[in-house]
Simulated scan of single mutants.
Amino acid sequence: MEETDLLQQDQIQLEIDVISTFSLAAQQNAYSVIRNIQVFVPENNQSIYRDLKLKLCGIDGWLGKVEWLIDEVTSGQSVRLPIKELKFPFETLFGLTEEMVLQLDFELIDSEDKIICNKTHKAEFFKLVVASN
């Protein structure tokens, strides 16, 4: 187990911060589901990664796939990627009758279209209920 941990420590890593709950009101107020995205190569990894693509896989009926391109990242570097606004369908968010958990799957793909790293986050979607007097 210790050997596996050491091997994982020198692998390219994804650091992704995703908001845990989201609603139609949050989308209308321009809050992003994604807060931060970074790709990090530890110093003990001497590889040079070129022409990488980070893909947020699509969610049927909710979201099309989203991609970021990374020209190059090398040993000891961290690349912060721009936050892209994800637009979820108004009708779907408005029509929610109960909480729903969506899985956001991120894949880091190399120039040969091989997945070299992946990360999964879950976000809870809910309809904002406004109390009336």
Rank of each mutant, 00 (worst) to 15 (best):
E107V: 03
V18K: 10
A131E: 15
T4G: 10
D10P: 00
K114T: 14
L6M: 13
G64P: 06
I37G: 01
A123D: 01
A123T: 15
V39N: 03
S23A: 07
V39H: 01
D10H: 02
L54A: 02
Y49H: 09
S47F: 00
L63Q: 13
L52F: 15
Q11I: 13
S23E: 02
I109F: 06
F22R: 08
K114I: 12
Q8N: 15
C57N: 14
K84H: 11
F106A: 01
P82H: 09
F106W: 02
D51T: 06
K87C: 09
I70H: 11
D71P: 00
Q28S: 14
S47L: 12
G61R: 08
I19Y: 02
L96Q: 05
V73Q: 12
F106N: 04
F125Y: 14
I37M: 11
E43C: 07
A26L: 12
F125Q: 08
L93E: 04
A123F: 09
S32V: 00
H121R: 12
V73G: 11
E112Y: 09
E99A: 14
V39F: 00
L81D: 02
V33I: 14
F94H: 15
L56Q: 00
E3A: 08
L24C: 03
P42F: 13
N29F: 11
D71F: 02
A30P: 00
E43Y: 14
K84T: 05
G64A: 10
G76E: 11
I109H: 03
L96R: 03
A25D: 07
D113Y: 04
N36G: 03
L14W: 06
V18S: 08
E85A: 13
D110K: 04
E91H: 06
C117A: 15
L54F: 08
G76S: 08
Q27Y: 01
D17A: 06
I16S: 03
